[in-house]
């Protein structure tokens, strides 16, 4: 049984799909920890466009409401953790530090060229975490 499941969320449709799979795997006493990484690359824009740090926090929480909805409806235990850094490495670091039992992450479904330029976050995460990982297409 997976006791502690890390669900990577980023406000996209992929995260919602990943949440639906996480729900299937999670049992009654599993904790699904949604991890949202506030990307360093976006820090300047985020701060500039937010009225205050409080409204920025709200803005980020809004990004995960749809995922939260999925988890709440399924009646799972969950919590949200916001990290700051570069999404891929930050998720890996956190997952390994907390020794989670499973990482669930959505794949953006990039084509060959996009993947070459942007790099696949889910792929990198899967390669580097010390626990099983589920990539949701």
């Amino acid at each position: 049984m997976y006791k502690h499941i890390l669900l990577a969320v980023d406000g996209s449709e992929n995260a919602v799909r990943a949440a639906k799979e996480a729900v299937k795997i999670a049992s009654e006493d599993s904790l699904i920890e949604m991890v949202f990484v506030a990307d360093f690359e976006k820090a300047k824009t985020d701060v500039l466009h937010a009225a205050s740090s409080e409204s920025l926090l709200l803005e980020r929480k809004r990004k995960v409401t749809r995922v939260e909805e999925v988890l709440r409806k399924a009646g799972k235990q969950f919590k949200l953790t916001i990290l700051h850094g570069t999404p891929g490495p930050e998720i890996v670091k956190y997952a390994n530090e907390k020794q989670v039992d499973l990482v669930v992450i959505g794949s953006r479904g990039l084509n060959g060229l996009q993947e070459m330029v942007l790099g696949s976050v889910s792929h990198k995460v899967m390669k580097r975490v010390h626990c099983p990982a589920l990539i949701v297409k």
């Binding site: 820090a43 500039l48 740090s53 700051h84």
Partner: peptide, 12 residues
């Protein structure tokens, strides 16, 4: 002070 806000955010 704008930069300080950005660093505050990045480093939490």
């Amino acid at each position: 002070l704008m930069t300080a806000q950005i660093v505050d955010d990045m480093t939490d």
